[in-house]
Design a protein around this nucleic acid. Structure first.
Lengths: 150, 150
DNA sequence: CAGCGCCTTGAAATATTATTCATTTTATGG
DNA sequence: CCATAAAATGAATAATATTTCAAGGCGCTG
């Protein structure tokens, strides 16, 4: 029940301006997942949701803040993260699927990270092909790149 | 006093794990800006700070969440925002200064936004030159682009 | 299936945060 | 410089969020 409920919470807060946990609890219950405000509080903690002030002088719950320090690397990660949809591997080749038109942006961000094991990259419109020396390096790269998306 | 105090708050939360407003109030006072929890609450609202759960199962106050919905436009905005340092204008030309190596990424994001008034763009390593038809359009574009950075 | 450990949850208690109301401070126009 | 409006603030309180504690559920293992 828990994961479905938390998914419901994410959906609900993206579609509504939820001001309080009570309010969220009510909607979550209506969505078919009975939960008290106490449980909602725990879910919010786990999902790392935040209560943020809105333009109209109120508050609402929102998705977590992925921006930490404003360091260069962090910026690159965010760029990468925002562009990339999926990462696949075939032998020593890695195929990164991006939003349309964003492959070059993502590749630029990746280049700037200066990952040594990368032999070269070719970026099209929504796909980047990354060539690494070995299957092993490619697999490691996939894990690293996957972590960037979190 | 208010702005200095709010600046102090930003500094303090970036350097410490602040769990409660009382705690923050104490540090802010120690920094030379007497303020009660009530005032801190108002400052937090104005600064759009958020209380977010930490890895060690607690809470802390943090800088605001700039990520909203995961829509395409929002992604583009974030990419742009992460790349761009400064925007200047000279007549009908706009010069966007970016992080080193990020000019193409930022330009790609901007292109994807399909802003009609842009005649063309040239991206170097850390600079984008954007050409618009008129001074007026360039000024409007600067405002729009500036808003993207917020 | 009994016993155990672990996770989840609700109700109530506690802690924390937001707001109200009164007051002071600061800015503004004469 | 005074009058007045607007903004800022603290104390107290109301509202909201978190935690504690006890109970229930679920999967394992013997």
């Amino acid at each position: 029940m828990k994961f479905q409920r938390q998914a419901a919470i994410l959906r609900i807060i993206s579609e509504n301006e939820i001001k309080t946990q009570e309010e969220l609890s009510a909607l979550v219950c209506k969505a078919g997942f009975p939960a008290t405000q106490a449980t909602i509080s725990r879910d919010i903690k786990e999902l790392k949701l935040v209560k943020v002030s809105t333009v109209d002088n109120g508050y609402k719950y929102a998705a977590p803040n992925k921006h930490g320090s404003a360091t260069y690397m962090s910026r690159l990660k965010n760029i990468f993260k925002e562009c990339v949809i999926r990462i696949d591997r075939a032998q020593n080749l890695v195929v990164v699927k991006t939003l349309t038109g964003m492959a070059n942006a993502a590749a630029a961000a990746m280049d700037a990270m200066e990952i040594e094991t990368i032999v070269g990259t070719i970026a099209g419109d929504d796909t980047i092909l990354i060539i690494l020396h070995t299957n092993d390096e490619a697999e490691k790269f996939c894990i690293t790149a996957g972590d960037l998306l979190k």
